[in-house]
Each structure stands twice: as C-alpha cells, then as structure tokens.
Amino acid sequence: MKSKSLTFIVPIFAIIILVLAACGSGDGEKKDNAGAEKESASSYPEKNIDGIIMWGEGGATDIIARTLAPMVESEIDGSLVMQNKAGAAGAIATQYVHDQPADGYTLLFGAENPNLYQVLDISDRSYQEDFVPVTIIANSFAGIIVKADSPFETLEDLVEFAKEKPNELIFGTTGEGGLPSVVLAMLQNELGTEFKTVPYDGEGPVTTALLGGEVDVTAVTVSAAQDYVESGDFRMLTVVNEEPIEALPDVPAITDSYPEIDKYLPWGPFQAVFAHKDTPADIVEKLSESFQAAVETDEFKDTLSNLGMEYMNISGQEAIDYVDQNRSTSAWMLYEAGETAKSPEEFDIPKVEE
C-alpha cells in the first residue's frame, strides 16, 4: 500500500517541479525581453529612419521637413531618408506610415489634413486614433494669392466677382481637406462665393499652376508663397488672420475686409512629425527630444521666421491638445459650409465655442 502511494506521488511532484521551472523560465524570458527592449531603445536608431512627406516638393511641409532633417540627424546620430508621397490630400502618405512597423523607423512629416479625413470620408485614418505626435514644429497662416497681373487688386474685388459670376473663376486646391478647401469653406459660408475648383498634389504643384495660368486664384501657406510675392510674380490679397503678420506686414488681414471671418480665428495650418501610435514610448521620447533640440536652434528658428511661420516646438499632451483643437475648428467649419460627407458628431469631435 505504501509502495503504491509513493508510486503515485512521485510523478505528481515531478510535474509540479517541471511547471514551476517553466514558469520561472517564462519570467526570465520576460525580463530578458524587457531588457532587450530597453537596450534597443537606447541604441535607437540602428538603421536609417524614413521620413515620409505627405505633400509634393516645394510646399511648406516639404521645405520644413528637408530643412529640419539634417539638424535632427546631428541630434539623434542617425540618418533621415526623406521621401515625398503625395496624393489624396496626404492620405496616401498617412496610410503608408500607418501600415509600417511601429518601431520608430517610419515617421510622417505632415500638416493638418488628417484632421478632416473622417468627416470628408477620405480615409479612416486620424491623428487622434492612429498616431502620436513627436513634435508640433510650427504653425503658419494661409494667404489668398493671385498672379501679379491679375485684375483682382484686393480681396473685395475677388469676392464680388465670385459672387456675381459663380463658378467662372478657377480656385486651385490641394484636394479635399487641404488648406485651400478650408479657406474656400470660410469664404463660401460667410461671403457666399462660388468657385470652380481644380485639385493638385500639394502647394508646390498648385503654386506652379497659378504661375502658369492654369488657375485664377489659390490659398497656400505664407511660406509657400512668400518668395513668389517678394519676387513680384504673385500678389497676396490677404492673410487669414486677425492682423497682418511680421513676414508680410503690408498684406492686410482678412478681418480688415470681412470681420465676420473672425469667428473662425485663430486658425491655420501646422507642420508636425508623427509616429505610429504603437511605437514604444521611450523611442517616441527620444525622437521628441532630438527634434525639439533641432527646432530650438537659432538657425532653424530663423528659417521659420523667414518662412512666415510661428515657432511652437511642443510635444506630449500639449501637442495632442493643440491637434485636437485644430480638428474641432476645421471639421465644424467645413460641416457648416455643407462641405463634409459626415457630421463631426459621428466621430465625437466637439464643437469649439465661438
């Protein structure tokens, strides 16, 4: 009887010992994996980082990204390989970055456009649900521009013509959700203008189209138009702000002519860098520190000033709050102008109080 009991008990103890050993081994593996993650973050980057620019060459996003990249390389001790992936108001680049591994090796150099993808039914992607901000570099101002030989000397000239002869003038855009479409919504919603629109893949292409006479008017960031204005090729009719800006002090603010636009302001495009939302937090932190150090340099601040942009250099929760505020303003502005496919309420986008 004793012998049978021992025969039964010994295998049970053996099983328990094996299970405990396996658990201990698993804990060790977890610790080793955690250590490996820390080690990989501390040694990041171990290969080139791809910087995906959501617009074509020559626009504000492209200029800022390519100016900043070499400065970031010095800070992070790695290489940034910049690529333009234009199309669908930046949605092609946004989807591309979203589809890459969340390892910090593919970054989105973007503007405000993904804030409107869902209400415009362009894409399911959004900054809020799919990305984390590495840094908000700067914000800027939109300017409404025409060629220097245009018959429209003032914004009032343009608005009156567009109201009296709807859809006769061609307004160049960067597609649904781009800066020009938001400015058009302001004009339509408050002033009753009607333009024919033609989309282009970014500010560079649309300014080239204006220069070539393919379109009559467009709205772009001040940075994308400034050289053309200063060279005498373009005339900027207004800056979309409550007051003139330092970069172009002679250009009137839009509220000088149309005070009713004030309810949408302050509003403007921004330049930022985003990573996939599942990127390890310590890698995002390392990226943020490197980008912020680069943006903080006097050399880059001078670049921003010369481009008519306002230095921001924010990250973390402050950056998240800023992007959310921009989204609320733009989404509801377009919705009230009848330009969105869906209501912002469907996506829990709060309305900004006037």
Rank of each mutant, 00 (worst) to 15 (best):
E75M: 12
I12E: 00
A142Q: 14
A281L: 11
L179F: 11
I76Y: 07
T303S: 11
V206W: 09
I53P: 08
S79Q: 11
V81L: 12
L6Y: 13
S343Q: 06
P259G: 07
Q271H: 13
E243F: 08
P151Q: 11
P101Y: 04
V159K: 04
A281P: 03
S43C: 06
F291L: 09
A209C: 10
K342I: 00
A142H: 13
E353V: 15
V81I: 14
V97Y: 04
E46V: 13
K277R: 13
E129Q: 13
L334G: 06
E310W: 02
T193C: 01
I137P: 02
S79E: 13
E260R: 12
G178R: 03
F171K: 01
P259I: 08
I170K: 15
E156Y: 01
A247Q: 08
G232E: 00
V119Y: 05
E194A: 15
S290C: 09
S315R: 06
Q100T: 03
T297F: 12
I136D: 07
L210G: 08
I53E: 05
T208G: 11
Y96E: 09
F8E: 12
K342F: 09
D348I: 01
P252Q: 01
V295S: 08
Q317H: 10
I261H: 01
V132N: 08
I349W: 00
V295R: 02
W332Y: 12
V10K: 08
F13P: 00
A294I: 01
L120K: 03
A34Y: 10
L211E: 15
E57Q: 14
K301N: 04
D121P: 04
T174P: 03
D262L: 13
L187I: 07
Y228C: 06
N84M: 06
S126E: 02
D103F: 04
Y127R: 02
G104P: 05
S25H: 12
L191E: 03
V240H: 00
I254T: 05
K2Q: 14
I349K: 00
A142R: 07
A275E: 05
A294N: 08
A102L: 02
E299H: 09
L20T: 09
T207H: 08
A247R: 11
G51P: 00
L211C: 05
Q271L: 14
S5K: 15
Q325E: 15
I53Y: 00
G59V: 07
D216N: 15
K277H: 07
R66S: 09
A22W: 12
L116T: 06
A337Q: 00
D262N: 14
G316I: 10
P180Q: 08
T106D: 00
L169V: 11
M186V: 04
D324N: 14
L108P: 03
